[in-house]
Nucleic acid binder design. Structure first.
Lengths: 249, 249
DNA sequence: AATACTATCCGGTACAACCGAAACACTTCT
DNA sequence: AGAAGTGTTTCGGTTGTACCGGATAGTATT
């Protein structure tokens, strides 16, 4: 399967990743970290600058705003984003908490949009941020509506423990997914970020295909039993409206 | 100068660009557009999918959310963005119009953040969007504080006509830049988008280095002489506050 | 079923990526 | 000032792999 898939491309993006993670760097720095000859890295950086995806400023290389551009263009085209437009703001208003729209990509949950309600906790959440599916409410909401085969595959790859509360037992996870299907929303209690509770509802299209999830996050202290149910209501309603928008636009 | 800067890297990003512009595509489509053999394009797509920067969904390839991630991370690190944080919203509120923060990159003006006021015209403006420096108010605001040498270089590369009102005469441009320096803000009257007037103030750091520009855009009909001066006031104040934030954080 | 199209696989060859080494640019010591 | 250290850039020969033509498999269209 991994049939030498063009080494140059792979290396180029390895360098981009490295730049992105460290917010830039010098040629030799990167060479050391990536264990490549300095001259090679230098060649790549030169090529990357040429493409416009990397900027050089006095020997200091950074990823350029082209990434923003490409990312936003794609996001703009995703139907879910259009469909959810006003709903996120409404949910943020009604709950006061931190609201996000996520999709599944490459077996991960990826944030597409963030809307902070008046009382929102300041999470490090930004468009493009990704997280494991099994360790988050939105992830579980989406998993609950994916093929059994894919879920099994993911389970086989191992359920990474993000916090001490993360569900790592396959049986427990499958049971939870069943619950999600029954009541229509998913919950995560400090399974990704200690002290944070998240409640998420899946967004399906008319073919019952999963298109994303809407998620509300807040501190455990503020989200008692009744409050959670209220939020679940709101999130599910938003997901429904989104589904309608999806199908009729 | 163009010393064979790694063809694979260049081609990989040519493909990414093409994908981004058309919101995705099939292998053969891209091959035709880029005038490359199908098998070659196929190889590249495979490699790109492997890196995670492109997703394949039933033969249809798209740029992935990785671009969003990389873009946002970088933006997060840019000092200007932090410094301008609340100012954009304030300006949007006070003017009611469409407000943006821009920086210069690769000889272009690039939008980093957008804030729409209550009466804002719906422009196709998103983070990462880029435009020529000489054809916009923020561009001219930044040009006015760049080295004469760089300005001369840009002029030499030719002043592209975006609309019929775009300044294409070097002498006129240089004169306008002088005016910008004198009164502290730049104006563009339908030079990039017909019917739109933009007013922008430069954000400088303590070394008088240009760090970006804050820009307000609105329809010509709404922006008479006095209104423009009011907006210029507001924008300049915001740019000043930003500068202070920049220097003291 | 036959046709047309596109995606995918394969493998030999030409060519460009690769990297060692040397030149160059800057700092930072003595 | 000179020297030594640190990091960047240039250069060119070799070697590995990107490249693409052609074959095959897969899918849609008639």
């Amino acid at each position: 399967m991994t049939n030498t898939p063009n080494r140059s491309v792979e290396r180029a993006f390895r360098i981009v990743d490295e730049l992105s993670e460290n917010g830039g760097g010098r040629a030799s720095e990167l060479a050391a970290r990536l264990e490549m000859p300095v001259s090679t890295v230098h060649d790549y950086l030169q090529a990357l600058v040429e493409t416009g995806y990397v900027t050089a400023e006095d020997k200091e290389y950074r990823t350029s705003t082209r990434f923003l551009e490409v990312g936003h263009r794609q996001r703009h085209r995703l139907e879910v984003v259009k469909a959810v437009r006003d709903e996120l703001a409404t949910v943020a208003d009604e709950t006061g908490e931190h609201v996000t729209l996520l999709i599944e990509e490459h077996d991960q949950a990826v944030i597409l949009a963030v809307q902070e309600g008046p009382d929102a906790i300041n999470l490090f959440a930004y468009p493009g941020a990704r997280m494991p599916l099994h360790a988050t409410a939105p992830g579980k909401a989406m998993l609950a509506h994916m093929d059994d085969g894919r879920v099994a595959e993911l389970v086989d790859q191992g359920l990474v423990e993000v916090t001490s509360r993360t569900v790592t037992d396959p049986d427990v996870l499958l049971e939870q997914l069943e619950t999600v299907r029954q009541r229509g929303y998913a919950v995560d209690e400090g399974e990704r970020i200690a002290g944070m509770v998240c409640i998420a509802a899946p967004v399906l299209d008319k073919r019952e295909q999963i298109q994303g999830a809407i998620c509300v996050c807040g501190p455990e202290s503020r989200l008692g039993e009744t409050r959670r149910e209220e939020i679940a209501e709101v999130v599910q309603r938003a997901a429904n409206v989104t589904q309608v928008n999806l199908d009729y636009v």
